[in-house]
Write a protein that binds this DNA or RNA. Sequence first.
DNA 1: CAGAATCCTGCCGGATACTG
DNA 2: CAGTATCCGGCAGGATTCTG
Lengths: 123, 123
Amino acid sequence: MIESTTTPEQACPIAPVVDVVFSRWTTPILWALHEFGRQRFVELERRISTITPKVLTQRLRQLERDGLVVRTYHPEVPPRVEYEISELGRSLAPLFAALSEWSVHLPEVERARAAYDARGGRR
Amino acid sequence: MIESTTTPEQACPIAPVVDVVFSRWTTPILWALHEFGRQRFVELERRISTITPKVLTQRLRQLERDGLVVRTYHPEVPPRVEYEISELGRSLAPLFAALSEWSVHLPEVERARAAYDARGGRR
DNA sequence: CAGAATCCTGCCGGATACTG
DNA sequence: CAGTATCCGGCAGGATTCTG
């Protein structure tokens, strides 16, 4: 998925990057891996708490396919699988830093919403 | 929409920013406004081409409510409405710059996908 | 022109099993 | 443990039509 058919953002140069990095659930997953290092499936599942195993699997597969995450399978009983961020995934760090820097503007967004709602949407 | 109920990304600090800035269609719209300046509804519609008027209206309303876009209504016949990026919206510029810088890694993503698909997903 | 209203559909993701 | 398989409901978003 996330093929050219999924990109209705014609003529927007940053759209492809957004598709890869900011599709659903990817940021929490990448952040968890970046913040807490290599970990197994259940750890991720518990850390993100509201995600279902099915969806977590789907997103991990996608991230693995895109080369942002590395999956390591240990053939043991019980089976053990570990996920870690790849070098390519780590290259997103400055991007995420820029993201969290911008969060200082979130209060402004809140105020804008409050003002908009207060005047009933229309000016 | 995009309320606290929509944020299943528990404990991820950048999730709120992602919700505001990278919800569907927002990047193409903001980029078009940032790149081509103030413009009217149809111009945006044509520029993004694959978006429907209904969805464009929805997203513009959301962006207006979040304070990222300014809507100006001119009471004429026929009516004229102009949209432009707000000061707050402009503060996203460095973020978008970081985004487009990261696009140099897109070929690596492509190669990762090709490799993954070539070996049939499983290693 | 700039939408609002209505109807309709795909598919994303949740819930609930079941395996190696 | 680390998933897969199946069913299923909600809603984002498309198509179409209508108005100030």
